[in-house]
Design a binder for these strands. Sequence first.
DNA 1: GATGAATGAGACTTCATTCAT
DNA 2: AATGAATGAAGTCTCATTCAT
Lengths: 206, 206, 206, 206
Amino acid sequence: MHPEPPDQRASRHDARRPLRADARRNRARVLAAADAVFASEGAATTTEAVARAAGVGVGTVFRHFPTKDALLEAVFVARLEVLAEEASALADAEDPGAAFFEFFTRVIEQSANRHTFAAALAATGVDVEHTTAVTVGDDLLDALDHLLMRAQEAGAVREDVSVSEVIALLVGTTRAAEHAGWDPTVQARTLAVVCDGLRPATDATP
Amino acid sequence: MHPEPPDQRASRHDARRPLRADARRNRARVLAAADAVFASEGAATTTEAVARAAGVGVGTVFRHFPTKDALLEAVFVARLEVLAEEASALADAEDPGAAFFEFFTRVIEQSANRHTFAAALAATGVDVEHTTAVTVGDDLLDALDHLLMRAQEAGAVREDVSVSEVIALLVGTTRAAEHAGWDPTVQARTLAVVCDGLRPATDATP
Amino acid sequence: MHPEPPDQRASRHDARRPLRADARRNRARVLAAADAVFASEGAATTTEAVARAAGVGVGTVFRHFPTKDALLEAVFVARLEVLAEEASALADAEDPGAAFFEFFTRVIEQSANRHTFAAALAATGVDVEHTTAVTVGDDLLDALDHLLMRAQEAGAVREDVSVSEVIALLVGTTRAAEHAGWDPTVQARTLAVVCDGLRPATDATP
Amino acid sequence: MHPEPPDQRASRHDARRPLRADARRNRARVLAAADAVFASEGAATTTEAVARAAGVGVGTVFRHFPTKDALLEAVFVARLEVLAEEASALADAEDPGAAFFEFFTRVIEQSANRHTFAAALAATGVDVEHTTAVTVGDDLLDALDHLLMRAQEAGAVREDVSVSEVIALLVGTTRAAEHAGWDPTVQARTLAVVCDGLRPATDATP
DNA sequence: GATGAATGAGACTTCATTCAT
DNA sequence: AATGAATGAAGTCTCATTCAT
C-alpha cells in the first residue's frame, strides 16, 4: 500500500553477485517453462501456470522475474539469443545465398517446433526501453544484416530489400505458417513463395 | 472468458423478431465502437471501454452481444463481410491477374488503415464452433478461390498455390506490415516481395 | 499488466454527476463500515473485512473508493468533518473558555466512543497531497483557531499556546486515553491534567 | 502475523545454554538494527529490511527471534529496559520534584531522538501474554511509582494522579510531539502544558 | 551457525457478467 | 430497452517463515 515508492523493480538479489548454483538452476527451469507455456498457451496465461510447469512456487518465479512483463521479456531475449547465434554460425558460409535462405527456412521451421518463435522476432527493435532485449536484438540485426549483404553481393537476393523487410517477412511468414496450423504443405509452399519473391527478378535478357 | 464450458448462450431477445429501430441503431453503434476500440487498443480492452466509446452503458453492450467473445466474433464477422464483398466485386474483372493482386494489395492497405484487419483474416477457418464466422468465412473463401483460379488460368499466378496458401500469405503479409509499424516503404517492399513470389517463375527459355 | 498507463486513479464514475440513490446509500454504508472496522481493527484490516461489514462485495468497495488508501482518506475526511462541525457549533458560545474546554473534552469522549477519532485528528495538516483531507482539515483548523483565540481573549487559556499545540495535545490526550484502555477514571484525570495545564498560571498576586 | 493461534514457539536453540560469542554479537546487531528500522519505517517494514540493516541474512534474524512479533517484542523490551534504568538512576535524587519532571522530559526527548520510544511505552502493561515485556514493564512501573510518590510527598506533583495517569500522559505527550513532527517549539510548549498541569493547583491563599 | 532461495497463503485490484431501477 | 451499480472469481504481487546448502 503505502510503503512502495522505492519501486525500482529490480530482481530481489544483488544482480552483480552470481546466483547460487541452485538458484541459477531454478532460474533456468522457470525460463524454460515460461517459454514453453507462453508458446502453447499465449502470453495471457497466469504466472501460476508457469510456476506449475516449472515445478516451483509462484514466489520463486517472482523472485527471479519481478514482474510478469519482466518474465515475458526474458523469454523474448532468450529466443532472440538463439536466433542471433544461428545467424552468426552461418556468417562465413561458403555459399552466401544458400546461407541466407537456410537461415530464413530454419527460423520458420524452428517456430513450427517451438510454436511461436514469432513472438521473439516480433520483439526485435520494438520497445526501446527494454534494454536487454534491444541489445540482444541488435546482435541479431547485425548478424542478419551481414547474411543479407553477402547474399545480395552474391546476387542471390534482390537489391531492394533491407533487413527491415527481411525481419518483417520473417515475422510474417512465421505468422502465415502459424495461421495454417503449421500444416507442412502450406508451410513449405508459403515459404517457397516468399523465398522466390526475395530472389532477383530474372531479367530475361538473352 | 475462454475457459467457459461450451455454454451455448443466445442473445437475450428472440432472434426471430426484428429489433426495434433504436435497438438496431444501438447494436450498430456498439459494433462500430468495438471495431475501433479493439483495433486501437487490442482485444484485451474492457467491455466498459467499448461501451464508453459507443456512448451506451455496459448493459446495452451485453444485451446485444451476450458475451465479450461474442462481441469479438461479431467484429470479426463484420470485417470478413467487407473482405468478401471486395473479393466479389472483383470477381468478373477483365484482367484476372490484376484483380487478384489488387485484392491482395487492398487487404494489406485496409489493414494498415483499420490497423488490424489481420485479426479478421486470422479468424478465417479457425474456431469451427463460431458458426457465423465460418459461414461468412466460406463466402470469402469462395470469392477468393474464384479470384485465384482465374488468375492462375490467366497465367498471372503460379500453379502450386491454393487458397490456403493465399490466405496464409495474406495473414502473414499483414502481420509483416504490422510488425514494420505500418511503415509505408517497408510495407510496399514486403508486399512486392510476396507478390513477385506469387507470380509464375519466368522460365528463362530463350 | 500492460494496459495501465491511463491510471489516474479516479473513482469509476463521472465524479460530477450525483450518484444514483442506491449508489449513494451504498457508499455511505461502506464508509460507515470502514470507519467502524478501521477503528476496531486498525488500518491494517483487509478490504474484504470492510466489505463484509458493509454487507457488500469487495467490488463495490473498490467502485466507490478506487484504492484502499482512498478509503482510509475518506474515513479521515469524514471524521474531520464531524469535528469541524462541532467546533463551529461552539463558535459563538457565550462563555468562550467553557466552549474551548467543552470542545476539548468532547473530542476525547467521542474518541472513546468511536474508538479512534485520534486517527482523524492525526490527519490534520499531514499529507499535503490529499487535497480533500487538507481542505476539510483547514475548516477544522479555522474553527479551532477561533475557539482558542476567544478563550485566550477571555483569559481562560494561557497565551503561549497556538492551534498547533492544541491539536498536538488533542491527539496526545486521545492517545493517552486510548493507552489507558479508555478507563474512565484515568481518562478523566488525564484530561484534567491537560486542561489545568492549559489554563493561565494563577499568578499569586495578593 | 497476529491472527495466529496461541502458538507458543521457542527460539531455535536451548535457551539455557549461553550463545556462542558470534551468535550473541549477531543477536545484538539484529536487535539494534530492528530498533532503528522499526523506528524510522514503522513496524510494517519487512523482516528482510531489518536483516539488510543488520548486515545478516533473514535466516539469522529468524534464528534469534522465531517470529516477527517476537522481534518486535524484543525491541520493546529493550526500550523499556532503558527507561527503567533511567528511572532507577533518578530514584534517590535530592530534589524529588525535579527528578520526576526530569524523567518526564527526558522520555519525550529521547522519543524525539529514537523517533518512536512511544511505541515502547505503549507496550507497558499491554499484551499480558508477552511475559518478558510484562516483567520488564513492572520494573519500570516500580521505578516510576517511586519517582512519583516522592515527588508527591515533596508537594511537587498533584495528589490525584497515579502511575497509570503518568504513563498515559507520557504516551500521550510523546504522541503529541510526534504529531507535531517533533517540532522543538511545539514539543516544548506541549510539554510545558502537561507539566504545569501535573503540578498541584496553586491555592490562591493570600 | 549463517545464508538466502523457496514456499504459499493472503492482500489488493480488475473486469466480465448480472440485475434492480 | 437502457443503464450503471453490484458481484466475486481470478490475477498479480508481497512477505513471513522454512529449509537445503
